[in-house]
Amino acid sequence: MLKDLFSKLNKKVNETDRNDGTFEKNESIMTKCPSCKKILYSKDLYKRLNVCANCSHHLPISAQDRLEALMDEGEVDLLFQDITSANPLNFPNYEAKISKDKEKTGLNEAVLCADGNIEGERAVVAVMDARFRMGSMGSAVGEILARAFGYATEHRLPVIIFTASGGARMQEGIISLMQMAKVSVAIERHNNAGLLYISYMTNPTTGGVSASFASVGDINLAEKGALIGFAGRRVIQETIKEKLPDDFQTAEFLLKHGQLDEVLDRRDMKDYLGRILKLHSGV
């Protein structure tokens, strides 16, 4: 009987996969931490920004929830929300997948962009969401980010991007690859205007997103335990024919190799970013 109860409980528990970044809307009472396997109250977990109370593992958080946790209460303008993916190559099933992800996430694209305050400092913030096509960058994401930098340049504002992405959106072929260049030319203008850009990498940040705007912040930050890298682990192992260390391509690994300014606990992001913004105010 006890066993039955346990299996029933288990069914209600949300299982999340550590590295794929996907996270279904948590409607069950309990959530199992994918790292330490402890069963947690979903409500408590939510209050802790989805950071496990037992082992501090960072479970995925939606773009909406992150934005809400980060921005000061009051006026937050969502920007460029009408931009959404077309199907430029007529790639099979692409539209259906987009529709499904829109329904699943309540987002119009894989990035949510806003203009508002963090600890009293105004900034343009873009938050990617890995639940939407793995946060991949197609024309719509490229356009939103390029416009975000354009808007910030025009209004002389800092930009913070929370990356969460598997890379380029393959269904848009070469056009998706060119979005890396598109966002880069927009960053160059913003940079040339002497404005601050903070890249905050979350789990996962790989491929074309890692190899473009995610890696070129004036300040490069990452969230604890985030997977960050250019090539996939499996591809590298197959190429070099050797096993990679467990911490390979984690935020901590990158910090050790001089690729990051700091690794942060999600619960510290607001304080930390607020402080950095204050130290750059008047720029």
Binding site: M180, A181, S184, V185, I187, E188, N191, N192, S210, A211, S212, F213, A214, S215, V216, I228, G229, F230, A231, G232, V235, I236, T239, I240, E242, L244, F248, Q249, H257, G258, Q259
Partner: peptide
Amino acid sequence: GAYPGKAAEERGQSESIARNLVEMAG
């Protein structure tokens, strides 16, 4: 493509490409 290797990742394969994109833009 850029080499998918261990040392390449350690030395910042992503950053090296990303840097070129922004610098080439300017």
